[in-house]
């Protein structure tokens, strides 16, 4: 029987070292923080101590970038053991990673590379998710990544792949609204079709972030504020999803905390309006 990912409704922020002192010394008005799992999957020292102290004050979500769930040669067992260890310590709200791959034949790109939307890839991803969830002893969430290339031979679209993946493995979904927008612009699909196509009852968390505009392509850089189009898409998403956890994700050019808190407040306002619209 599948494990079920937990539910949580609230607004959070990615914990980055520039704001450690804020989170340790003051009461930041948020409902949870999300950390990059790998930054704390170390043997000891200050990073683990900071995570322990932050966890005493806030619920924590563990968000990974290195599981490589789409690898055709399976998962790294040592990685899973380390992730299990930190998850047992932290007792996180969620453990999440991306629908992507980074590792093949001992090589690790350290990037979120795209998975082809084929039956063969879906079977492989589902086998890997089953293994990960069994080793971690909990249901995971998987995020839709931004992508810059679409492969020939796809037999389904991204949201169909995500829906089947979630149904077959019991995993939850982490909906990154900026990634939907970036991929929709890069590949020419309708982002609203994506939002309508994923199973709303499987979404447990939403990411909001900024992107950069390159020559003929959008790039998911997480170094900008959330743009107006993505805020608008977020409003649509929240009217479809109902109350789920939302967080602001900034990884580069980190501004003062107040700027990010303004984005958290914006997300709260939009989610509240969307809920009212849904009720009306």
């Amino acid at each position: 029987m599948h494990m079920t990912p937990p539910t949580f409704s609230g607004f959070g922020l990615g914990l980055r070292k520039e704001h450690y002192r804020d989170f340790l010394d003051t009461d930041v008005p948020i409902d949870f923080v999300e950390v990059i799992s790998e930054n704390f999957m170390v043997d000891g020292g200050q990073p683990r101590d900071i995570l322990r102290r932050v966890r005493e004050r806030y619920p924590v979500a563990l968000h990974g970038v290195s599981m490589s769930i789409g690898s055709s040669d399976g998962l790294d067992v040592d990685y899973l053991r380390r992730l299990r260890s930190i998850a047992d310590d932290v007792e996180p709200l969620f453990v999440s990673d991306h629908l992507s791959w980074s590792r093949i034949a001992g090589f690790n790109s350290h990037d979120l590379l795209p998975v082809p939307y084929t039956s063969e890839a879906l079977d492989m991803v589902c086998r890997n998710i089953d293994m990960a969830q069994n080793m971690l002893g909990r249901a995971m969430l998987f995020e839709n990544p931004s992508s810059y290339i679409a492969f020939d031979g796809a037999s389904m679209c991204e949201w169909e792949f995500l829906a089947d993946m979630s149904r077959r493995t019991g995993c939850g979904l982490l909906l990154d609204v900026n990634n939907v927008y970036v991929s929709a612009c890069n590949h020419g699909f309708d982002p609203h079709a994506f939002l309508r196509g994923i199973p709303a009852d499987r979404v447990r968390q939403v990411h909001l972030a900024g992107h950069s505009v390159g020559p003929g392509i959008l790039i998911d850089t997480h170094d900008q504020p959330v743009c107006d189009d993505v805020w608008s898409l977020y409003g649509t998403a929240m009217s479809l999803l109902g109350p789920v956890a939302t967080m602001i994700e900034r990884d580069d050019d980190i501004p003062p905390l107040a700027e990010l808190m303004a984005e958290v407040d914006m997300a709260r306002d939009i989610a509240t309006l969307s809920a009212r619209r849904e009720v009306a």
């Binding site: 350290h110 990037d111 992508s147 810059y148 290339i149 679409a150 020939d152 890069n186 003929g216 392509i217």
Partner: peptide, 21 residues
């Protein structure tokens, strides 16, 4: 092997790979 239409996207991934390292 991924076709001409993939060139721009692959350039992004290739740049990400090297810049990150």
């Amino acid at each position: 092997i991924f076709g001409a239409s993939a060139a721009t996207g692959l350039a992004v991934y290739r740049n990400n790979y090297r810049a990150q390292l």
